[in-house]
Write a protein that binds this DNA or RNA. Structure first.
Lengths: 209, 209
DNA sequence: ATTTTTCTACCTGTTTTCAGGTATTTTTTA
DNA sequence: TAAAAAATACCTGAAAACAGGTAGAAAAAT
C-alpha cells in the first residue's frame, strides 16, 4: 500500500482549514497533518522537509502567498504547492505558476474540483480549477510582461496613494520634497505603464503588489 | 426536547459551507438544512419563511450581502441573520447591523467563536467575533455618518473610475458630454466627502458601494 | 398630476497631476 | 572597492482634475 501524501494547509480562516480537513479525512491518498494560519508559522515548522503537499492561500495576514511559494520552492523544490484564493486575477495566477506552484484553485470551486486538482498535481500536472483554466488558456505569451519590481520607497508611496493622499500630503508624511514625491509618482506610473493613480491602484491590486 | 434551529448558509465557497456543515453536524441546537451560493438562490428558496437562522456571507457573486440582509429582514423579521466576511471594515459592520443583522463574524474567527456567537444570537444578543468586537466598541455615534446613496449613473461612473478611466474615456464609453461626466465626478467626491479619486475608491471599498 | 430626484450640459477659474528632461548623493549589490 | 541601483531634488510646460456656480430636460416617486 502507498503511503498517503503528507499535506499541510496554510490559511488564516479556520473554517476553510477545517473544511479541507474533513474533505480529506476519508482519503487514503491525502493526509492532512497540520494547518497554519500564517506564512511565518509554516516557515517555522520544523518538519517542513517531510511535507509532500502544501495547500496555500494567497492572502495571508503576514506574508504574500506568491513570495512564500517562491521561498518554499527554493528550499524544498519537491513539495507540491497548490495555491488557493478567492480571486482569479490572471496576473496573480501566472506569477504563482512562475514561482513554482503546481496549481491554482479558486475557493469557489466545488469540492470535487478540489479533489481532482490535487490528484492532478500529484500526477505531475499543472492543476487549475475550471474557472481558472479559462483564464490561463487565453493567455498568450505577450501578456506575460514582467511585473515591475518596485523599490521600498515606491511601495511606501504607493500605499499612501492608495490611501487617497496627495503629493503634498505624502511629502509631508515622509519628510520629502514635493518634487521628490513627484518623481517617485512618475516612476511608479512609468514602471507599471499606467496613466493615472486609479489605474496604478488597479494594477497593483491585480498584481498583488 | 427543543427543536433545532433550522439554519441555512449563503456563501459561494463550497469549502466554507462544507466546513460549517461539519462544524454543526453534531449540534442538537443548530441544524444546517441547506446552503446557497448566491443571494438569488436564497430568495428563490420556497421555504425561507421556515428558516430560523441565516449565515450570510457579505460578498456574494450576485448581490451585496448588506442589501440582501435588509431585504430578508423586511419580509421575515424573525430570522436571525449572522453576517460573515473576511473583511472587518467598520462601516460595513455598522451598515449590516443597521440593516438588522444579529451579528457579525470574521471568517478568521475560531470555530469556538463561531459557535458561541451563534449561541449568543439565538439568545437575542448582538454577536460579534472578538476582532469585530473591538471595532464596534470604539465606534462613537459621530462615526455613523450616513453612507451617501449613489445614483445609478454615479455607480456606473464610479466603476469606470476604479478601472482607471479618465473623464474623456468615460464620456466616450457612456456617450456623454465631457462636462456631464465632470459633474458626476464632482458629485461623487462631494457626496463621499473626499478630495480625489483615490480617496473615493478607498471610501467606496470601505463602504461596500 | 405634481413634486422631487436624477441626468444632462455648460461656464470660469484654480490646483494638481502628468510628462519630459537633468543631476547629485546615498545605498546596495556584485 | 567599483559598479549599479535607489533616493533625492530641481526645472518647465501641457493636460487633467478639482471646485464653484447655474440650469433645463427626463425620469422617478409621491
Amino acid at each position: 500500500m502507498i503511503k498517503p501524501y503528507k499535506t499541510v494547509i496554510v490559511d488564516d480562516h479556520p473554517i476553510v482549514s477545517e473544511g479541507l480537513q474533513v474533505l480529506f479525512s476519508q482519503s487514503k491518498e491525502v493526509e492532512i497533518i497540520r494547518s497554519f494560519k500564517t506564512g511565518a508559522a509554516l516557515l517555522d515548522y520544523g518538519s517542513l522537509g517531510k511535507v509532500d503537499i502544501i495547500l496555500l492561500d494567497i492572502f495571508l495576514p503576514d506574508i504574500n502567498g506568491i513570495d512564500l511559494c517562491l521561498k518554499i520552492k527554493k528550499s524544498y523544490p519537491k513539495i507540491i504547492i497548490l495555491a488557493m484564493s478567492s480571486q482569479s486575477e490572471r496576473s496573480i495566477v501566472l506569477q504563482m505558476i512562475k514561482n513554482g506552484a503546481n496549481g491554482y484553485l479558486l475557493k469557489s470551486a466545488s469540492l470535487d474540483e478540489f479533489k481532482s486538482c490535487i490528484h492532478k498535481a500529484i500526477e505531475g500536472e499543472l492543476a487549475f480549477s475550471n474557472e481558472v483554466k479559462g483564464i490561463v488558456q487565453k493567455t498568450n505569451i505577450h501578456d506575460l510582461k514582467a511585473i515591475p519590481r518596485l523599490t521600498r520607497r515606491e511601495k511606501e508611496i504607493l500605499l499612501l496613494l492608495a490611501d487617497g493622499k496627495s503629493t503634498q500630503e505624502i511629502s509631508d508624511a515622509l519628510f520629502l520634497s514635493y518634487l521628490t514625491v513627484q518623481t517617485h509618482r512618475r516612476n511608479l506610473l512609468s514602471k507599471c505603464q499606467v496613466k493615472n493613480v486609479a489605474e496604478l491602484l488597479k494594477f497593483a491590486k491585480e498584481n498583488a503588489l
